[in-house]
Computed example of a mutant assay.
Amino acid sequence: MDLFRSPQIVLFTRDINRASDFYRALGFEEAFRTPETGTPIHVDLVLDGYRIGLATESSTREDHGLEPVASGQRAAVILWTDDVPVAYARLVELGANAIKPPERWLENLLIAWVEDPDGHLVQVVQSLK
Rank of each mutant, 00 (worst) to 15 (best):
M1L: 11
D2S: 15
L3G: 09
L3M: 12
R5G: 11
P7S: 11
P7H: 10
P7N: 11
I9V: 15
F12Q: 05
T13E: 10
R14I: 04
R14L: 06
R14P: 03
D15L: 04
D15S: 05
I16M: 02
R18I: 02
A19P: 00
S20Y: 02
D21F: 07
Y23G: 02
A25N: 09
L26W: 07
L26M: 14
F28C: 08
E29V: 08
F32M: 09
T34C: 12
T34I: 13
T37P: 04
T39C: 07
T39V: 13
I41A: 11
H42V: 10
D44N: 08
L45R: 05
V46K: 00
V46E: 07
L47I: 10
L47R: 06
D48N: 14
G49Q: 12
Y50M: 15
R51M: 15
G53M: 08
G53E: 07
L54P: 15
L54G: 14
A55M: 07
A55K: 00
A55T: 07
T56M: 08
T56R: 01
S58P: 02
S59A: 15
T60W: 15
T60A: 15
T60M: 15
R61V: 12
E62G: 12
H64W: 15
H64K: 14
H64D: 15
G65T: 01
G65S: 06
L66A: 14
E67Q: 11
P68C: 08
S71K: 00
G72F: 10
G72Q: 08
Q73P: 00
R74D: 01
R74A: 06
R74T: 04
A75Y: 06
A75L: 04
A76N: 05
A76Y: 03
I78G: 05
I78N: 03
L79S: 03
D82E: 15
D83T: 00
D83P: 00
D83M: 00
V84C: 13
P85K: 08
P85Q: 10
A87L: 05
A87H: 00
A87W: 00
Y88N: 03
A89Y: 03
A89R: 04
R90W: 02
R90I: 03
L91G: 01
V92F: 02
V92N: 03
E93N: 04
G95I: 02
G95R: 00
G95A: 09
A96I: 07
A96T: 02
I99K: 03
P101I: 03
E107A: 05
E107D: 08
L110Q: 09
I111L: 09
W113P: 02
W113Q: 09
W113D: 10
V114K: 00
V114G: 00
E115K: 00
E115A: 08
P117E: 07
P117N: 09
D118T: 01
D118E: 15
G119V: 13
G119K: 09
L121S: 06
Q123K: 09
V124I: 04
V125T: 07
Q126R: 08
Q126M: 12
S127G: 11
S127Y: 12
S127V: 04
L128F: 07
K129N: 08
